[in-house]
């Protein structure tokens, strides 16, 4: 029996956002946008979904006079991401793609 892939992470943009955040302490919106190549609108929607699921936290503030949105992966998000990667590896080792 293969583990079920987390549907929330099984989306290209959400997975890319989680991958960016898995490798950093925290990242601001513009960095994530640059790394994922997403549009601001689409990225905002996906970040909201990840926040609602408790996978990331979002902090809104200002840097100087500019508004700044900083995202950070939560322990729950890190566990989910790790479980997703482990599941993918199981699929691949079983020859399923």
């Amino acid at each position: 029996m293969f583990p079920k892939l987390d549907p929330l992470l099984h989306s290209e943009l959400r997975l890319a956002v989680m991958s960016v955040l898995a490798g950093v302490d925290s990242a601001d919106f513009s960095f994530i946008k640059k790394q994922t190549g997403a549009t601001a609108g689409n990225l905002s929607v996906q970040i909201d979904k990840l926040t609602t699921a408790g996978y990331i936290t979002v902090e809104k503030g200002f840097k100087g006079k500019m508004p700044c949105t900083t995202c950070k992966i939560t322990p729950q998000g890190r566990d989910a991401f790790q479980a997703y990667v482990d599941a993918l590896k199981e699929y691949l080792s079983a020859g399923l793609d």
């Binding site: 099984h10 290209e12 997975l15 890319a16 991958s19 960016v20 898995a22 490798g23 950093v24 990242a27 960095f31 790394q35 994922t36 997703y84 990667v85 993918l88 590896k89 699929y91 691949l92 399923l96 793609d97």
Partner: peptide, 21 residues
Amino acid sequence: MTASESLALITETLNNSRRAI
């Protein structure tokens, strides 16, 4: 996305942000 595409996306994104830092 297939499993290998997902893993490739994760690897590429992690590497890109590591490079930027």
